[in-house]
Design a protein around this nucleic acid. Structure first.
Lengths: 218, 218
DNA sequence: ATGGGGGCATGAGAATCCTGGTGGTGGAGG
DNA sequence: CCTCCACCACCAGGATTCTCATGCCCCCAT
C-alpha cells in the first residue's frame, strides 16, 4: 500500500514511516502542506497520514484538497491532544479517521490498515494466470500445482503482475507499487527480482519482457 | 483473543481483567464510555465486556456504536440486578449477551468464551491441525495425543495460529490479538513465545516461519 | 555487413535484514 | 526462598536485496 506521511517534526515523521514500512507499505514523507499538495500531482496514495498542525498550508486545507480531488485516498489526521474536541471538525473536512497525539505506533498502523481495507475493498484472494496460482491470503504460489517458495519482494512483484492481468507493467510502476519513493529510480532491484522470479517459476517462461515497455505474464 | 473491559469501578474492572487474562486473553481496561469509543478506532476487539451504568457516555450508547460500526465485535453487557427486566432492551441495542450483577467470574469467562466462538463463525471449541489438538474449553493442548503444558501466552499464540488455518500470521497481528495495548511495539515477546512453543511442541516442527511474512502451522 | 548503442540479462559480491538462540533480569506466586 | 513466566539485550548464521560489472541481443545508421 502506498502511504504519504505529512508531519513537520522530522523525528516523528521518520518513526511513523519506519513503522509503516515494517508493515510492508511503501511510505513517502513530506514536512509541510505545500509539499504534500505537490505529491498528489505526482503519485496516487492509498492513505495519507496527515498532521493537522502544519507550518504554511494548514492540515485542514490539505485535507480538504484531498477530499475534493482524490476520492480513492483516505486520510488519517493526527492532532494534538488539546484539539480533541475538533474531532467532528476534522471528520467534516473529509478526514476518514482521527488520531490524537500522543499515540502508539501500533494504533496508527492498525488504523492505517483499516483505512486501506476501506479504500480497496474487494481484492480477490486467489489470483491465477498461465499456470500460476497465487494465494494472497496464505502467501503461497504454485506453478502447475507445484509449490514455489518466494521471498517477500518476489511475491509482491508477482502479485502486481497478476493484478495487471497480462498487461505489461513497467519497472517504474513496479517500483511505485512495491518499493518506496526513496529508492533510487535507476536501481536494478526490479530486474534482479524479475530474474529470480523467472528462475523460481521455471520453464516454460511465464514472465515475459515487452522491451521498452515493461514486464507481463504469459 | 482480544477483549476490552468497560467498567467504572476499578476494583471490579481489575478483577474481571485478571480473571480473563488467566484464560489467556489479552485484556484492555477503560473506565468510561468515551474512552471505550476511542479504543475502537485503535484495535478490533473480539469481545467487549460492557458495564451498562457508566458515567458520561452511557453503556447503551457505547453498545449502539459498537453494533453499528463493528460487526465482528461481540458485546457482553453487565447490569445491576434491579435492571433485570432491561434484558430485552439491552439485546435490542445490539448486545450479544447479558449478565446481571453480581455474577461469578467463572460464568463471565464462560460467556466471553462463548461469544468469542460466535464471533468466529464455525470455530469449533476444539481446534486441530498437523497433529496439534487444542481444547479452548479446558485450555489443553495435545501433540499427537500427548499432553503439552503451555503457559498463558503460549496458549494464546497457538490459538491464533490455529485459527489462521495455515495462513501466515505476522508478529504484529499476534501482538494485536494476544497482547494488550501497553506492549512495546518493538518487543521480542512474540519471537520468544514462538521459540518456546516450538520447543514444547517437539519434533517434527509444526510452527513454521514464512520469512518477512509471519508464522504459520504445518 | 558492420560497428555502435540502448535495453536487458546475468553473475559475483556486499550490505542489510531476518531469525533462531543464549543468557540474564524482574516480578508473581507458591 | 525458589520456580516459573515474560521479556530484553545481544549474537551469529543465513537469506534477501541491491550494486557493480559484464556480456548478450536486436535495431539501425553507416
Amino acid at each position: 500500500m502506498r502511504i504519504l506521511v505529512v508531519e513537520d517534526e522530522p523525528l516523528l515523521a521518520d518513526a511513523v514511516a519506519e513503522w509503516l514500512r515494517g508493515e510492508s507499505h511503501a511510505v513517502d514523507i513530506v514536512f509541510d502542506g505545500a509539499a504534500a499538495l505537490e505529491r498528489f500531482g505526482v503519485n496516487d496514495y492509498d492513505v495519507v497520514v496527515l498532521d493537522r498542525d502544519l507550518p504554511g498550508v494548514h492540515g485542514d486545507q490539505v485535507c480538504r484538497a484531498i477530499a475534493a480531488g482524490h476520492g480513492e485516498t483516505r486520510v488519517l489526521m493526527l492532532t494534538a491532544a488539546s484539539d480533541i474536541d475538533d474531532r467532528v471538525t476534522g471528520l467534516a473536512l473529509g478526514a476518514d479517521d482521527y488520531l490524537p497525539k500522543p499515540f502508539a505506533f501500533r494504533e496508527l498502523a492498525a488504523r492505517v490498515a483499516a483505512l486501506g481495507r476501506r479504500a480497496r475493498p474487494a481484492a480477490p484472494p486467489v489470483l491465477e494466470r498461465a499456470g500460476i496460482t497465487l494465494d494472497t491470503h496464505r502467501h503461497q504460489v504454485f506453478r502447475d500445482g507445484r509449490y514455489v517458495p518466494l521471498s517477500r519482494k518476489e511475491f509482491a512483484v508477482l502479485t502486481e503482475l497478476l493484478r495487471a492481468d497480462g498487461a505489461p507493467v513497467s519497472a517504474e510502476q513496479l517500483l511505485e507499487k512495491a518499493w518506496d519513493e526513496h529508492t533510487d529510480p535507476f536501481t536494478q532491484a526490479v530486474r534482479m527480482t524479475i530474474l529470480k522470479l523467472r528462475r523460481k517459476l521455471g520453464d516454460p517462461p511465464v514472465v515475459l519482457t515487452d522491451p521498452g515497455v515493461g514486464y507481463f505474464l504469459k
